[in-house]
Design a binder for these strands. Sequence first.
DNA 1: GTCACTACTCAGCGCTACTATGTACCAGTA
DNA 2: TACTGGTACATAGTAGCGCTGAGTAGTGAC
Lengths: 109, 109
Amino acid sequence: MGKQMTEMLKGTLEGIVLAFLTGNPAYGYEITTWLRSQGFTDIAEGTVYALLVRIEKNGLVDVEKRPSEKGPPRKVYSLNADGEKYLEEFWTTWGFLAERLESLRTEGK
Amino acid sequence: MGKQMTEMLKGTLEGIVLAFLTGNPAYGYEITTWLRSQGFTDIAEGTVYALLVRIEKNGLVDVEKRPSEKGPPRKVYSLNADGEKYLEEFWTTWGFLAERLESLRTEGK
DNA sequence: GTCACTACTCAGCGCTACTATGTACCAGTA
DNA sequence: TACTGGTACATAGTAGCGCTGAGTAGTGAC
């Protein structure tokens, strides 16, 4: 992956995953393949699982273990109230940054 | 500063500074105050200087030392050809990410 | 029986922003 | 003279996040 993208994903990847989880419980492998289908082709599996561990530890998601038809049992993550609040803050932060950058790109400065 | 913002700035702060430098040579202190005026009120001085050292080492900017009317001499940074190329790549990367996030925010997923 | 896909885990690394502190020059002022 | 405050740069140490690379395990097809 490009170094620029790697750095830029810091902080945003978490928001992307939380946004995906909104009203759409999912498990790690599913999230990884979805990310890749969205163009984040080089996201490492390890990255996603580490992120999931983190947001679980931070209490932003609820976890449920379900058997899988194929392979080991899945850990299904769903956004809880704290997660929704956190996601809202994320959008606020993102909105500010995106606005600043957009005006930098168009106005020149 | 908010933790979310701190993480999100990783990768983007560099682009912001390079964009500011486009056709607009500036020195560290000036860049810091400009960033603060743009709403990045909590950017630490040390962060900016470290970033400037980095982009200089990576050959993205040219540096010229100029005496100041007030205080120690200034190090004036200006974007060079490599910097412009790097900035272009930055906008491409940013554009992709912004597009993905925007569609996540509006479409829901 | 081995290949491919599914599914999760973990140790170690590199990069970037923050914290905290220090140096130094100059102007105003009490 | 001493002190305060604004200007200007520098750096050592810390924390957080994504990546690398490797490993474990269950299932089904050939």
